[in-house]
């Protein structure tokens, strides 16, 4: 779920308010959007992909992470490279090559069925 709107990074473009398909954000005081309806977040990461300032972080859990979790800690998320990592992976942002240009996955054969005993 969406866990962080970085006040220091946010450029007050309100793109997240527009693009969130489940309307999680509201306009906030001073131009920083607020997470108004976290429980409606469907953890689709689309706000992160569209944020031009890498100011948003979506934790992968579909429930809120506890207070004190590193996934809510901006300095941890920035220093670990997680903040902005999805946008980097899909190659969105000035000067980047779209990830779509490289997106050729492996050939998928018949799915493995787990055997009774592993060799």
């Amino acid at each position: 779920m969406i866990e962080l709107v970085s006040e220091s990074r946010c450029v007050s473009c309100d793109v997240c308010i527009a693009v969130c398909p489940t309307n999680v954000f509201d306009a906030g005081p001073g131009g920083i959007p607020v997470i108004a309806r976290q429980s409606d977040c469907q953890t689709c990461f689309m706000c992160e992909a569209h944020c031009p300032a890498d100011a948003l972080f979506v934790a992968p859990q579909t429930h809120p992470v506890p207070d004190g979790s590193p996934l809510r800690d901006e300095s941890h998320l920035a220093s670990s490279g997680l903040l902005g990592s999805y946008r980097r992976e899909i190659g969105w942002g000035r000067g980047r090559r779209p990830g779509a240009r490289l997106a050729v996955g492996p050939e998928l054969g018949r799915a493995r069925i787990t055997p009774a005993a592993l060799s």
Binding site: T43, C44, A111, R112, T114, P115, L118
Partner: peptide, 27 residues
Amino acid sequence: FTSVTKTAYYSFATFFRGDGSPLAGAG
């Protein structure tokens, strides 16, 4: 506890019970 339902790549998976034994027939 996550949302990312991308089942196709689990064709590379081996599945286990909670005790670590293989979950025979799972795929």
